[in-house]
């Protein structure tokens, strides 16, 4: 059988994926690590405009899962487990205008990302688009660019 095609999530994905519990359906609970660090950043489109209507999901070894909608300035924030043997978290981005969800990764700067097998497939000049910066107090920042200069690397997972 052939795969069901993707379609954009559109601008109103919050209704189904970040529901208001006062309207009957309770939001899915994230699976939180015991000792979380914060991942955050801004999501930009190909003309450097913040994407204020997107949703980002995170998946990390150990069963850590969470999602967040970007705010009206394109900002996002998620909780992850501290970097361990696996130096990255997987991210998946959907929004109006994104026809098929985009898979990318956030690598922790203080983990051994340089010897990661997937990173080895990324042209050296583009690797920095995947490596967060440690901004102190257990927080890591990564801006994500869906296009334009410094376009983030996306994977055909």
């Amino acid at each position: 059988m052939k795969q069901t095609p993707s379609q954009t999530a559109g601008p109103f994905l919050h209704i189904g994926m970040m529901p208001d519990p006062a309207r009957g359906v309770r939001p899915l609970s994230p699976v939180m690590p015991a000792d979380p660090v914060t991942l955050y950043g801004t999501l930009f489109d190909g003309e450097d405009a913040p994407m204020g209507d997107a949703l980002i999901e995170m998946w990390q070894i150990g069963g850590i899962w969470a999602r967040t909608a970007t705010d009206d300035q394109g900002r996002w924030r998620l909780s992850a487990a501290k970097p361990g043997a696996v130096p990255f978290v997987s991210l998946w981005i959907i929004a109006r205008g994104i026809n098929t969800g985009l898979h990318t990764r956030l690598y922790f700067p203080d983990a051994d990302w340089a010897s990661d097998a997937a990173m080895a497939r990324v042209p050296a000049a583009r690797r920095s688009t995947l490596v967060a910066s440690d901004t102190g107090d257990g927080a890591y920042r990564l801006d994500i660019r869906v296009g334009g200069a410094g376009e983030t690397v996306f994977f055909d997972v």
């Binding site: 190909g46 026809n99 098929t100 497939r121 869906v146 997972v157």
Partner: peptide, 30 residues
Amino acid sequence: PDWTRHPPALTPGYFSSITRSPREGLIPLD
């Protein structure tokens, strides 16, 4: 992913895709 089934990122007839489509191509993973 079966790219004979899923839409490509850039589809100019759907205007929102124009500024929200990666142009570099996806990096295949083994």
